[in-house]
Design a protein around this nucleic acid. Structure first.
Lengths: 192, 192
DNA sequence: ATTATCTATAGATCTATAGATAATGC
DNA sequence: ATTATCTATAGATCTATAGATAATGC
């Protein structure tokens, strides 16, 4: 049952969307090609017409996830324009929210897959590196600071605090401790 | 070929040591019971005399890894006693070193396995939570700050910055960017 | 006629267990 | 006699592929 060119392009998008969500939610090894294709509404044999391998999909899915995070930050920053420091505060409030903590499938790919990405091949590594660069540059335009070098340094430190807080808050099996981490990180950011 | 009670206890330790290292290095799904037992010098059938399941071992291995991290921090802090702020600086310098970044099998379990631990069952979650609590309390005695609440908050934020920086530095497929992250995090800590 | 998808399966790997083996410890 | 370990394997799952099917697009 062949489909139209457009339908095939849409099918590829659906596979990518499912992968971007399910890899973050379950980890690269927590979901197989067959279940991914099922989630996208196809059978698993068709997968290899769209991607060369599971690792190929992983790289594209990481790229998509990172792009989504950057776009959301963009949107939040735009919504808080005007207020000084408001843009960084908006991004930080989202990133350190319980909602973001609890919806691993839709949030930051570095927090969800970063450690595992470090164990993968060049495709995945390069995709996540591009995303890190992009998000860092976006953050650098939000943090306070005189020189560009100062802002970049602050952006990287802020990025680290955000990612680490989310990883800790998700790992902690105790809601009080988990919230404490998120709030402590929020208080430590240059946002104020 | 039965072994003595003491030999069996030593064998269990060897399994735990191999697991603590290999899980951090390759991820929970990146190493199987058979290869773990081979690394410990046994065949995989014997595994189930020591642990109820792979997940049972995962929980014990996480506990051991977290305990090792805390002990190393303890040692570093003791070595830098006297100098004001020196203890925190010593811990931060180790945590944010390229050596720690490159030896995933021997470092912080939260940075290596935190996101994956969040996807595991109660045993693993509880083990990592105990470790997080323990390390946080240790850090709280090193950071500057007036009240105990202030120091605890600073300790949690510091912990987050350390973990996030290491995850980012390991994910980044570019040594310059990777070092930049580590140095930016180092500069942002209250250690000075 | 071409080709995107589906069915079916090969080949590898993984967790867990059953039964055999051989050394300890009462 | 007991029991820690080993050999062998069951049963499940995973990636990838081969060949069949059926709808598109020249």
């Amino acid at each position: 049952m062949r489909v139209s060119k457009q339908q095939m392009a849409e099918n590829r998008e659906r596979i990518l969307d499912a992968a971007a969500q399910l890899f973050r939610e379950k980890g690269f090894d927590g979901i197989g090609v067959a279940d991914l294709m099922k989630a996208a509404g196809m059978t698993h044999g068709g997968f290899y017409g769209h991607f060369a391998s599971k690792e190929d999909l992983m790289a594209h899915a990481v790229e998509r996830s990172m792009e989504g995070g950057r776009a959301l930050a963009e949107q939040l920053a735009a919504g808080a324009a005007g207020r000084p420091g408001g843009a960084l505060a908006a991004v930080a409030d989202w990133y350190l929210s319980c909602r973001h903590r609890d919806e691993m499938g839709e949030g930051c790919a570095v927090a969800a897959l970063g450690a595992d990405a470090a164990r993968q091949g060049p495709g995945v590594r390069q995709a996540i590196t591009r995303g890190i660069r992009s998000f860092t540059e976006r953050l650098a335009r939000l943090v306070p600071g005189g020189t560009e070098a100062e802002r970049r340094q602050k952006a990287l430190a802020t990025y680290a605090t955000l990612v680490g807080a989310l990883v800790l808050a998700r790992a902690a099996d105790d809601d009080a401790l988990s919230r404490e981490v998120l709030e402590a990180a929020r208080a430590a950011l240059p946002a104020a």
